[in-house]
Design a protein around this nucleic acid. Structure first.
Lengths: 331, 331
DNA sequence: CTGAAAGCGCTAACAT
DNA sequence: ATGTTAGCGCTTTCAG
């Protein structure tokens, strides 16, 4: 075990100065062929690897982005992450993936780490906007871009047109002939949840339908929440005959509730989900969804970080979701 | 923007030495109440955050584990990661999540990063065992634990009894009365793939059934591969009437193929998958699977890292998978 | 209990 | 082209 070969060891073996070793390794300036090869073989022989933190201390910066998301297990975020990774990698940056688990304190911890490590940028899906940590990042001069959820601060952001997507989904259900379209959305503190609810309402209004509060439920964006909300809605006196569910996990829960209740989709109930999922094609009937351009969201977020102008005004990108009509909505 | 408040700034404002500031922040030794509070308020006032890399340079170690997995989008790995994270967090370590994407060169890059940053440990699902990077980590004295796939080196590892799981799955299909049980497994370079194939064969032998090579296919552990393999198997002259599919992604592909071919599960075909998935309960019929104790695999791997004795012999943990019988296998 | 000083490994500026 | 030097921010002896 040779725990700690330093640049001095290499220099000594190659009979040059540490500075020359550094130059060879970083290509900072020309070095004679002779010394160059001596250095390279010494590096090889000793298995030398430059010590990252020492470099970072010199450079005062780390080529790393932090990605703070609320749920690593959600396919939406994993796909976004891929987009970020590809673009970041191309730009010579690495990624640290942080899972805030929708918890404000975990989010705070990760923000602190990003600051302590002086990371080059942060892509964040804000967990709780009321006590979000954005200010701290901004105060420390760390570039941030918010994704998915609309931040209350005026900072770079990449979001989708949630209202439009929800409106399309709901309008589609109405056009299919469903009479009483219900909605399960997320907590009010998450901006996407409210926007999707608004889109749903807009569609109803546009179609001249009444807005029945009894057909609208808020749950926690998780599977269990979707299950409970769907049961409550469907076991009520005047249940909906169609459902727009505002995220993928809750859609799973809703489908289970529907199954447990013995309701047949799409004969007795139409359903459209938000977010496409690997299993949307797999279930029976195949699930109609509003798909978000997940990879593109991530790619764009990284792009904003990479091309950021410290003097420039915040840039906001809004991407369009797509309604993918499959079988679950067709009466 | 106060990009770089240092410990000296804090010391100056608090009218103490930098050493004292350090002592207060780390609780290394007692400091008078007066100075203690002066330091704390200065820290507060300046928004000081200690610079991680400088610390790391002093300490020569970083309290970070690298988790190198082959597919972030696979629920198997995300669940494992959670297990690692919880245990690591409890032990005061952070995680860097690295996605090797089943590619040897990406794996090599991440191993290099782990070495350069002198990370405290690495949990790795080896991508390509023939050109694995384990040696480099070992040479640099970085603690490693291999998960999921059995490493060729004698190092700490956490795996499941793949042979046993596959045997159970296959035996279950046989007991259910299926006559010609086929198998789709992964590439031979991935140890789990071969072990699961062996388990399948063992079960067939134990039941006195012939081993027909035409009923065994290797694919790439991905969805597309599962789709193609299933089609080939099912469109052959003497197709199987049941299928054991050796991982979750390929099972998705196989189910699509089955659907496209208009084959009814479980009336005309029985199927058992390896790895439980969020959608296994959701599809119709509900999928029978061999479930791995994913969270426990991760937790255990982190535990091995946390409790490692540099002098001790490598420790190997083998966990038992569980057959979860649902509807897709019952004739 | 506290300050001064040295040094972790690396690189950029300055000489030569 | 190359060596010497200084210093990034922090912690840890060592004195006092």
């Amino acid at each position: 075990v040779k725990g700690s070969v330093t640049i001095d060891d290499v220099a000594q073996l190659a009979r040059v100065s540490p500075a020359t070793v550094s130059r060879v390794l970083n290509g900072t300036s020309r070095v004679s062929d002779d010394k160059g090869s001596r250095v390279r073989s010494a590096v090889e022989q000793l298995g030398y690897e430059p010590f990252g933190p020492a470099r970072a201390l010199r450079h005062q910066r780390v080529r790393v982005f932090a990605v703070i998301i609320t749920d690593v297990e959600n396919p939406f975020f994993t796909s976004v992450t891929r987009g970020i990774e590809d673009a970041a990698h191309a730009g010579g940056y690495r990624l640290v993936l942080c899972n805030s688990d929708e918890k404000a304190d975990k989010e705070a911890t990760y923000v602190e780490i990003a600051i302590r490590e002086r990371m080059a940028g942060v892509v964040i899906a804000v967990a709780a906007s009321d006590e979000s940590q954005l200010d701290r990042l901004i105060a420390h001069g760390i570039p941030v871009v918010a994704i998915d959820r609309r931040p209350d601060k005026d900072i770079d952001s990449v979001v989708v047109d949630n209202r439009g997507g929800a409106r399309q989904a709901t309008a589609h259900l109405i056009e299919c002939g469903w009479k009483r379209v219900g909605c399960i959305t997320g907590p009010s503190r998450i901006s996407t949840a409210s926007e999707r609810l608004q889109g749903y309402r807009n569609a109803l209004r546009a179609a001249g339908r009444p807005l029945e509060p009894a057909l609208q439920k808020r749950a926690d964006y998780r599977q269990q929440g979707g299950y409970k909300a769907a049961r409550q809605l469907l076991e009520a006196p005047h249940p909906p005959d169609a459902l727009f569910v505002a995220n993928n996990l809750m859609t799973v829960g809703a489908l289970q509730a529907i199954h447990d209740l013995g309701i047949k989709v799409p004969h007795e109930l139409g359903i459209v989900g938000f977010d496409d999922s690997p299993w949307a094609e797999l279930i029976n009937p195949r699930l109609t969804v509003v798909a978000q351009p997940t990879y593109e969201i991530g790619r764009m977020a990284a792009e904003l970080l990479l091309t950021r102008d410290p003097e420039g005004a915040p840039r906001h990108v809004e991407l369009a979701p797509t309604l993918i009509v499959r079988d679950s909505s067709i009466r």
